[in-house]
């Protein structure tokens, strides 16, 4: 089943087809989309290839058996949350350090509306927000400011930024991610105040 048209089906369409004809090929396509992401995610938390491999299969089968119980709208967000919780649960068995993060990430109905709200608010305000960019940038801490500027303004790669600043690749990545998240939050706040 390698026809390109099947590759264009959305996650939900694939699930729908599987529900109606039980043909596992649909799930195969879905698996190809997420397997490597799940493998990486499990590796990040479990730090063991064998455990990660078992977990990926477990998570995928669990998601499929739960799919009838929930009205899933964002498959990606959902499988990410299930996978993360599975890994944290695995870790919790041996280690209580991660228990706090797990509690903060309890999954459930709250996830869906939150995502939709976020997407809607984002689209509405983009242009308004860009006006305050300079001001918002100055509110970031220095590391985030530097990395965000180098990445978005100078279009440098992660590796180049790491070489330039002396930060590690992981640090660069997280400064950009967090800087970007903070920027968005700040800009949203500004544009709300202005209206």
């Amino acid at each position: 089943m390698n026809y390109p048209s099947y590759q264009n089906l959305t996650d939900l369409e694939l699930l729908q087809r599987y529900k109606s004809d039980s043909n596992s090929e649909w799930i195969g396509i879905l698996f190809d989309r997420y397997a490597i992401l799940l493998l990486g995610l499990c590796m990040k938390y479990l730090k063991n290839e064998e455990d990660a491999r078992d977990s990926v299969q477990h998570i995928f089968l669990k998601v499929l058996s739960d799919v009838h119980k929930h009205e899933v709208q964002h498959f990606k967000a959902w499988i990410y949350q299930v996978a993360k919780n599975h890994c944290l649960m695995q870790l919790r068995k041996t280690n209580t350090r991660y228990s706090k993060e797990l509690d903060e990430n309890t999954m459930g109905g709250a996830l869906e509306p939150e995502l939709e709200k976020e997407a809607k608010a984002e689209k509405e305000q983009k242009d308004l927000m860009l006006e305050n960019m300079q001001e918002a940038m100055s509110m970031l801490n220095l590391e985030q400011q530097a990395c965000v500027k180098l990445f978005y303004l100078d279009k440098r790669s992660y590796q180049e930024i790491a070489d330039d600043t002396g930060y590690s690749l992981l640090q660069v990545k997280s400064y950009i991610q967090n800087g970007k998240r903070n920027l968005k939050l700040l800009l949203e706040k500004y544009s709300k105040n202005k209206r």
């Binding site: 596992s24 799930i27 195969g28 698996f31 190809d32 397997a35 490597i36 992401l37 799940l38 493998l39 990486g40 995610l41 499990c42 590796m43 990040k44 938390y45 730090k47 290839e49 990660a52 491999r53 990926v56 299969q57 995928f60 089968l61 992981l170 990545k173 991610q177």
Partner: peptide, 28 residues
């Protein structure tokens, strides 16, 4: 980005596609 972080810790990256094929076979 989480996935990439985890994948970079795998030593034999050229084996990843084979591992994924095996997992897919098991799941199906």
């Amino acid at each position: 980005s989480d996935a990439l972080e985890g994948l970079s810790a795998i030593t034999e990256k050229e084996k990843i596609p084979g591992v994924i094929r095996q997992m897919k076979w098991n799941v199906l």
